[in-house]
Every structure is written in structure tokens, then in C-alpha cells.
Amino acid sequence: MLVIEDLQVMMGDKELLKHIDLEIRPGETHILFGPNGSGKTSLIMTIMGYPQYRVTYGKIYFKGEDITNMPIDERARLGIGMSYQRPPSIKGLKTRHMVEICAGDGADVDSLAGRINMNSFLDRDINVGFSGGEIKRSELLQLMAQKPDLLLFDEPESGVDLENIVLIGNMINELLERDNTPTKDKSVKEIKKARSRMGLVITHTGFILDYVTADQGQVLYDGVLACKSNPVEIFKQIKSVGYEECVRCGSET
């Protein structure tokens, strides 16, 4: 379980997040909406542990541990993983090696890559010259190898062409254990019950909702979390009346 209590975050002298409370239980996926600059990326970078995002108040707990001041790598080893919107490229580091790093102790990199149509990228330097969609697939491939318990997705659909959006959507669903197709041995109910992975997905287009089912939606506006509700409903509302209504919501609660 991820628990965030009254979190306040600053970068330099700018306040990015104000009094954030958030709880993601095992098996749950949350969608985080919000306009550009509202603090969405700041929130997941803070959860991942980027030190530029300075926690000035509040706590973050994961699996019962206080991780508020834990370094990035320890959080990763504790089971937090992230799909970046714009990851850096690293010259000389082959994608294959990166996937091996993610897997820790051994993975069938070729077969993993085959599932997300990335085989031809394995011997290229990670992210060097990748298109927007290729970067998203590369990020997913890394998470497939890393198998974190909490997955943070920063705009996984941005820059992806129509041809690949289904592939990416389905893969996110699978990573979050949200593929509910019943089998001979397991009913839908049993599958849902066995689900333990947690997800927090940032979107500002909402396209990803066509592919990923989520338990809850939240709107982040100007550093404040507002409007906890059904994600599809929130998205409809944003489409019709824009984010301004969320501000009203936020100030009322």
C-alpha cells in the first residue's frame, strides 16, 4: 500500500505540492488528471525519490515503511517503478543491457522485447534517437523486466501513434494485472482478488482510459488534489466544463 499524508513539496522557493493526501491499496490503479504545470509529474517524481523535489512537510509510506527520505535506488528495490515521459538517453548503454539491469537477476530479454515490438532496438543505445512512441515502448519493456509492485506512469500515451496505442494500452493493463479475461481455472472475481499491483497513471489527454480500467480518478490542480471520483466521470466532466470546475470542487472540500 502507498500512503501519502499531508505532503508538501518545494523546488527552490517554489511550492509545487500542497497538502497532498493519497492512498493506493494493493490491486488499485488511480488516474491522475490535471493541466500542464499542475504538479502531476512533481508528485510521481517525489514518490520515486528525486531529491530536487524537497519534501518540506508530510510523509510517504510504502509497504508500511516510511520512505520519505529514502534514496531512489532503495525505493526501486522496495518495489517502486516508473515509466518516464522524457527519459534521458545514455550513449553506449545498449537497451538490452538496460533491460538486464531492470531485471536484476536474469531475464529473457529477447522474448520480453518481442511482446512489445522492441527487438530491433535491443542493440541500440538506450533512448538515443528514439521517437516518442519508441520511448514509451522502451519504458514499458524496462518495467516488464523490473516488475515493480507500484507502477508510476507519466503520460504513457503522449507521442504514441494510433498503431501502437493499443499495444501500449494492453501492456499497461497487463502490467497492472487488469486483464480480467477469465480462464478455465480462474473466474473474473478470483483474478481481481489475486491482483496486488498498484498503479498511478498521469494523463492529460485521457486517451489511456480507453484501454486501462482504473479504480479511482483524481484531479491535481495547482498543487492541490481535488475531485476524487470515478475516472471516466471525471474525464467527461473535464471535457465538458474544463478544469475550472475542479478548482471549485477543490476549494469546497
Partner: peptide, 23 residues
């Protein structure tokens, strides 16, 4: 780049070494 590798589970030293090797 160091943080990116750390978020995949490498320690800071391992991440630096990996980047140098790539360089």
C-alpha cells in the same frame, strides 16, 4: 542519467560505473 539508472535499482556507484562504461 544517474537517477534514471538508480530508479531501475542500481546504486549511485553502479549507475556511475555503467555510464562511464557506456561512454
Amino acid at each position: 542519467e544517474i537517477f534514471y539508472l538508480m530508479s531501475r535499482g542500481l546504486t549511485e556507484d553502479e549507475a556511475t560505473a555503467t555510464i562511464v562504461r557506456g561512454f
